[in-house]
């Protein structure tokens, strides 16, 4: 095992590692749901970037990157979007319920 050369893949890999930390910090410390959701997506972007580095380093057989991790990331991006869309709809509905309760003066 030896130190990786400082090339594009290493640089983006380190960026992915930093993004995971930034996203995690936001998920833990933010109280607003929408901000936590944004932080969750920042973290996801970092994880995907790490996959991108694995793909880039696995380049071979005439491909510029290993297609398998790239395909996994494409699936991941779509699934992350679906989870985000569902979470946003839940947050909106929760806010609407809160407003309705405030209007009744019952809360």
């Amino acid at each position: 095992m030896s130190l990786a050369p400082i090339d594009a893949a290493t640089l983006y890999g380190l960026t992915g590692a930093v993004l995971v930390g930034i996203g995690l910090y936001g998920i833990v410390l933010h109280e607003g749901f929408i901000r936590r959701l944004l932080a969750f997506n920042l973290l996801g972007g970092g994880v995907f970037l790490l996959f991108g580095v694995i793909a880039r380093r696995g380049a071979g057989a005439g491909f510029s990157g290993d297609p398998v991790p790239q395909a996994l990331v494409i699936t991941g991006v779509v699934v992350a979007f679906c989870a985000t869309a569902l979470a946003i709809t839940l947050i909106e509905r929760l806010a609407a319920e809160d407003d309705a309760n405030d209007g009744d003066g019952s809360s």
């Binding site: 095992m1 030896s2 130190l3 990786a4 890999g13 380190l14 590692a17 930093v18 297609p67 398998v68």
Partner: peptide
């Protein structure tokens, strides 16, 4: 995570072939 990036296994795993 940065350590994993900086100390890669050699040769890198790949299913490209």
């Amino acid at each position: 995570l940065a350590a994993v990036v900086l100390l890669p296994v050699s040769p890198p795993p790949s299913l490209a072939a």
